[in-house]
Design a protein around this nucleic acid. Structure first.
Lengths: 170, 170
DNA sequence: GCTTTTAATTAAAGTTTTTAAATTCGGGCA
DNA sequence: TGCCCGAATTTAAAAACTTTAATTAAAAGC
């Protein structure tokens, strides 16, 4: 662990941040912390709508394309099927979504927004927007585009590596 | 990429900036997804060490400055005190850390790394490094520095806004 | 028609998180 | 000295999110 940082920053000199000093080693921590803070704020914003963080993604996905099967939702949101089942179950109990079997393929359970669900879209969008704006206070347009681009790239890299751990092609 | 626009957006009122690429609206989702993927991969990498994601931060914090009080750890990691208590409890049961009352102030419970805890530091560091490298595959140095800088800024913005929502002074 | 694969759910197990209440100790004040 | 308040931790209670493994139901294939 000697490779921490070239200049021991033990000297806790207040909140002085040497600018370009960040290294790769700071990434996972920074990402984790940022995401946690984001979730905390988003949760509080969403509480007013009666939603929990994590459910917003489902609503937004359905708002864009209603009637998705549970499996597709799980894949889109990056969670496993049972997780999605639980989430949908909770949201159904809360009255935001509704399950209906597919007419063509009875194995499929499609998920639809209810009236309440559709109404919540606006609130979610603005909650997320408020959160995003707070988070990016002082950012330039370029910063934001760059950030989102990099985050998506990270997600892609990680998911690719996640599936093909010992599958060394590509 | 721009999967968003097929039919004009919700026509919401307020600040709308339709940019070609990613917009602010993609941020919370992108951040959430990236963080989730990161945690998934990190969890798997860490499992070999017998740790769970979330515990790594405690170990690293102690590696940098052993014997921190529980409250300080909670603050550093961005969680509430009871959460830290549980985490520390689990980690103590797993043998990674040890609680010892402070000699001077008996109200303080200081947390120390055990031998096993110290040994795990290397593994954690390399797990995180592997994860970071996978995540940033194809990134330039500049990308990484920029990313970490922006993530830290986000965290700062969110925490600042979180505390001073209606209570603006320090 | 029987077998395999796909989709969703249920079961079982753990972690993380929060708020509110309870405990313990240190220090100030009468 | 003794009492009460404040700080730090822990306990308690409550929820949510995850995952893997096993189960059920139904479509597809042989």
């Amino acid at each position: 662990m000697g490779k921490k940082n070239k200049d021991g920053k033990k000297g806790k000199s207040g909140k002085k941040k040497d600018h370009g000093d960040y290294t790769l080693a700071d990434l996972s921590l920074a990402l984790t912390q940022a995401a946690r803070s984001m979730r905390t704020v988003l949760t509080r914003n969403l509480t007013a709508s009666g939603l929990y963080a994590g459910q917003d993604g489902v609503i937004l996905a359905l708002a864009e394309s209603d009637g998705l099967p549970a499996g597709t939702l799980a894949q889109k949101l990056g969670v496993k099927a049972p997780t999605m089942t639980r989430t949908i179950g909770r949201m159904e109990a809360q009255g935001f979504v509704e399950r209906r079997p597919d007419a063509g393929d009875a194995r499929l359970t499609k998920v639809y927004l209810t009236e309440a669900g559709r109404n919540s879209v606006t609130e979610i969008t603005s909650s997320a927007a408020a959160c995003d704006e707070l988070a990016t206070r002082g950012f330039s347009e370029k910063d934001i585009r760059s950030l989102v681009r990099l985050l998506k790239a990270i997600d892609g890299n990680l998911q690719a590596g996640d599936h093909s751990e010992d599958d060394g092609e590509f």
